[in-house]
Design a protein around this nucleic acid. Structure first.
Lengths: 144, 144
DNA sequence: ATAATCTCTACCGAATATATAGACATTTGG
DNA sequence: CCAAATGTCTATATATTCGGTAGAGATTAT
């Protein structure tokens, strides 16, 4: 299990916006403040925009800002905008009826549910308040 | 979050061995019984061996067998043998002392712990008893 | 000795992740 | 209306990982 750079950068970009909620930030400002590759960040911001998490405006005085208060945006929403969603499908021949109660499929279902719920419990506000550095973010690339 | 083919194949190979605990199986037998690519399986079995989960013997009448009863081998042990381990390191500047209680780092620690514990709750015996088909195993490639 | 097996290291091709390029559209202020 | 500053979009390039293969060598049973 691994958090992609895309996921990491999305979180960091959103943190930058959350810490600057009064005014819009240009892509360049976000990129330099968080040391993110600008053109890659562009794509990520577009994804965040099409998920409705940020607003943007072109032109001078343009830039990006949060579409909602940081309090009401969750880590799960941010990651969901740029990562594959948690699949929650069971194969036809493994419905609850014929599945052994402690089987590996049930196990994985449990894990998915837990992770999904967890990701929805932490708000952008909380992680923006936390003093998370770029170095800390590196630690977010985690494995199972 | 994704289970690699390596992980899937390791589980299936171990299931094959668990269902045939009386005698050793050759790589070819394991590969054909579970429809696994033989040369790839070789490498996986070597990893399982160096983790002490299986024993092997060369020569005629040689082959692989479980090093311990299927009851005492867990899914976590199998995946751990072939996948990257769950890292459990915290960066120096994010010890418990200065970490916000609901921060993203804590969140991820929680997830890791939960998954790690979960993977240790299901034994090889349990998944070998369960009628898990190759098709079911496909469903194990899951995403978060 | 020979044949059957496991062991080890290197390599390859394809897919995926990461990143860059550049032409274009939109907005602001003069 | 023009120019400059920005975001938008699509294509492409590069790096890394994944899945798989090759083949020479070591071990064992008979």
């Amino acid at each position: 299990m691994r958090l992609s750079k895309k996921g990491e950068y999305a979180l960091r970009a959103m943190i930058a916006l959350a810490r600057n909620e009064e005014s819009a930030m240009t892509i360049t400002q976000i990129a330099t403040s968080q040391t993110l590759p600008k053109k890659f960040l562009e794509q990520i911001l577009l994804a965040l925009k099409s998920s409705g998490l940020v607003r943007s405006k072109a032109g001078p005085k343009g830039g990006y800002e949060l579409a909602e208060p940081a309090r009401s945006i969750t880590v799960g929403m941010i990651l969901g905008a740029v990562e594959e969603p948690i699949s929650h499908t069971r194969t036809a021949n493994n419905t609850d009826e014929n599945l052994a109660p402690s089987g590996v499929l049930t196990l994985l279902e449990d894990i998915k549910l837990y992770v999904r719920n967890k990701l929805e419990t932490v708000s952008l506000q909380e992680i923006a308040d936390e003093a998370v550095t770029a170095q800390d973010m590196e630690a977010l690339m985690w494995y199972i």
